[in-house]
């Protein structure tokens, strides 16, 4: 870990402005992924701006009947919030399926969205990785790829986004609020926050330099049955092989997003149009054009079967 200067910011706008003033700045909130990567010399900031003191830790109602979740709301608090549990159960469930109690106590809403891939080659600085070291190549494609992406991948990168929370938020039509160094703010649909790898897997989001996420908003509750099914080798404290986040209505329609398959939470609205035809049809739409490796082709079947299981559970609960 390289030496860095450290500063506590007092307001979101100030934090963004400060970041733009010092080369090598990064925001630190929970730190659970950033420090992990700094210890491995994968993240190498020279200036850390601690944003934990910003008053972004509230969950409040929006005039549109939805909720606004502060960027610094801890995963535990978000999952345990009474309104989230009642109206956005999918989000609670996804959060609780992730990491461990200790990590959820620290990890923040924005940090969770911005966590980096768990591809083992990304994590090993002796290995080529286009995401870590642009142009160095991808060791994963012909290597150990069992847990990696099957759709939206490129010849440069097959990494997945590891978040469970983001899958739920994608299914729930979340938007991200930000502030930029010049003080301007904007809203970005979550669907547009994460990028596909293409030829620049090192660029993971559409955020501008030093743009700070201040909140995530959810529209009014969707209703229906909320299920987050995470499939993994061990029963807890593991990243998903795949996951299915679903909010399914009595009539069988609904929203569906997948985790563990792509560089971003994966949702295809067209797939939701064929839910009446069953899991196979939905799965085919969701994963049309998938290019798995030999080691992770099983995810195609796994998605379809898990989806079928989720839809059956929803029917039973409706």
């Amino acid at each position: 870990m390289r030496p860095f200067t450290y500063l506590r910011a007092k307001s979101p706008a100030e934090a963004a402005a400060l970041a733009a003033q010092v080369d090598g700045s990064r925001f630190i909130a929970g730190g659970t992924n950033l420090l992990d990567l700094m210890k491995l010399d994968i993240e190498t900031p020279t200036h850390l701006i601690d944003v934990n003191g910003l008053a972004l830790d509230r969950i409040e109602a929006t005039p549109e009947g939805g909720v606004r979740i502060g960027a610094l709301v801890r995963n535990t608090d978000l999952a345990a919030d009474a309104r989230i549990r009642k109206d956005y159960g999918l989000l609670s469930r996804a959060l609780l399926a992730g990491a461990s109690g200790q990590l959820r106590n620290r990890a923040t809403t924005a940090g969770n969205l911005l966590q980096r891939t768990r591809c083992p080659y990304f994590y090993d600085t002796n290995q080529p990785c286009n995401k870590r070291q642009p142009g160095s190549g991808c060791a994963a494609i012909d290597g150990f790829s069992r847990s990696l992406g099957i759709i939206g991948v490129s010849e440069a990168c097959i990494a997945t986004h590891p978040s469970d929370m983001a899958v739920a938020m994608r299914a729930l039509d979340a938007q991200v609020e930000t502030v930029r160094p010049d003080g301007t703010t904007r809203r970005i649909p979550l669907a547009e926050l994460h990028r596909l790898p293409g030829n620049t897997p090192n660029i993971e989001t559409t955020l501008a330099a030093h743009e700070l996420i201040t909140a995530v908003t959810l529209p009014a509750p969707l209703g229906g049955v909320h299920i987050y099914q995470k499939v993994r080798d061990r029963a807890s404290y593991a990243f998903a092989l795949i996951s299915v986040g679903a909010a399914i209505q009595k009539d069988g329609s609904g929203h569906i997003a997948l985790g563990g398959v792509a560089h971003k939470p994966w949702r295809v609205e067209a797939a939701e149009a064929v839910m009446a035809q069953g899991a196979k049809a939905v799965s085919e739409q969701l994963l049309a054009g998938a290019t798995p490796t030999g080691q992770n082709a099983f995810k195609l079947t796994l998605v379809e079967r898990t989806l079928a299981s989720v839809m059956a559970q929803a029917r039973a609960l409706a």
Binding site: G30, G31, L35
Partner: peptide
């Protein structure tokens, strides 16, 4: 009052 992983947080925080 909350448990956490002391390895993934800086003392100065």
């Amino acid at each position: 009052g909350r448990r956490l992983n002391a390895c993934l947080t800086l003392a100065v925080m």
